[in-house]
């Protein structure tokens, strides 16, 4: 069971949260298919420290960015 730090509500159980993917910046719409596919589909999918978006969906609804070690599940500062 993960215990994740919601910036608004504090540390809560993982059941209250929804994973939201890797943060990315949307490119302008007039780009090549390759650039668009890179943005929409390609992921770093790191083993180890991994920057990711989470939403406290079952709580305050706050979105936040977290760095978490995907090999150990430890939440990193």
């Amino acid at each position: 069971m993960l215990a994740l730090p919601c910036p608004h509500c504090g540390t809560r159980d993982e059941a209250e949260f929804q994973f939201g993917g890797e943060p990315a910046i949307r490119p302008p719409s007039a780009v090549t298919d390759t650039v668009w596919a890179e943005y929409v589909y390609m992921r770093s999918n790191e083993k180890g420290p991994h920057r990711e978006l989470w939403c406290h969906a079952g709580g305050c609804g706050q979105w936040f960015v977290l760095t978490r070690n995907t090999a150990t599940h430890a939440v990193l500062p």
Partner: peptide, 18 residues
């Protein structure tokens, strides 16, 4: 379950989440 790790070593990303 380690495609992303090897892809990173070869210098590319995949449309995969583990």
């Amino acid at each position: 379950g380690h495609s992303g790790v090897l892809a990173a070593k070869a210098g590319f990303k995949l449309p995969i989440q583990s």
